[in-house]
């Protein structure tokens, strides 16, 4: 199989190399960039990240990567946000105050509800709410590795899958058109995560 070209956006916060390795194992030819002109013309983009929302969003703005990502989305590029990258796709976050996000998915990022262990860390079964190309070929409840303290409240129409958290369920996967995000780390989720990454690489663009 020919490697699939993917542009990975360097948002300047942790764990970029592991996301790149996961994509490469899934068959991607990865270009890591922080240059908006590379992002604008990309057809398949991954926005990874571990860390704090305001710092990452600040860096995207400073480098004008926010504009580039919106333009790429408008031009029909497939975009996958991972963990913090997933959260950045939403309209805003309450992490350390209020910060506007990219607004490519509808909803807000909030602190996980109290009364459970936070950070929410470990392997959890993701519960699909609807069919989605990202989840094709996965069992009805794939196991994914989560590490997070904040979570998106997605628009019900855009919520693709949830994960149990205490007595409630929180957003695990969201999508609007070709823009999608996963709260977990597919690059650290063994075979199920690899299937999801390969699904992203085979989406039509």
């Amino acid at each position: 199989m020919q490697p699939v070209k993917v542009v990975v956006v360097d948002s300047g916060v942790g764990n970029l190399p592991n996301a790149v390795r996961g994509l490469e194992r899934a068959g991607a030819a990865v270009t890591v960039t922080d240059r908006p002109e590379v992002v604008v013309s990309a057809r398949r983009i991954v926005l990874p990240g571990v860390g704090a929302f305001p710092a990452a969003m600040g860096r995207l703005r400073t480098l004008e990567l926010d504009v580039a990502l919106r333009r790429a989305a408008g031009a029909g590029a497939a975009i996958l946000g991972i963990c913090l990258g997933h959260q950045l796709l939403f309209e805003a976050s309450e992490e350390h105050g209020h910060t506007r996000g990219l607004g490519l998915l509808r909803g807000q990022v909030v602190r996980l509800p109290e009364g459970e262990r936070v950070p929410h860390m470990g392997w959890c079964r993701v519960e699909p709410r609807r069919d989605d190309p990202l989840l094709r070929g996965l069992a009805s409840g794939p196991w994914m590795y989560f590490v997070h303290s904040f979570v998106a409240i997605a628009d019900p129409e855009e919520e693709v899958a949830t994960v149990p958290f205490g007595n409630t369920h929180v957003c695990a996967v969201a999508r609007r058109g070709r823009v999608c995000g996963v709260q977990f780390h597919p690059e650290k989720s063994g075979e199920d995560g690899a299937v999801l990454l390969r699904n992203f690489l085979s989406e039509d663009v």
Binding site: K188, S189, G190, E191
Partner: peptide, 8 residues
């Protein structure tokens, strides 16, 4: 190890 391992 990081090159080949897809679990934490």
């Amino acid at each position: 190890v990081a090159e080949v391992l897809d679990i934490p």
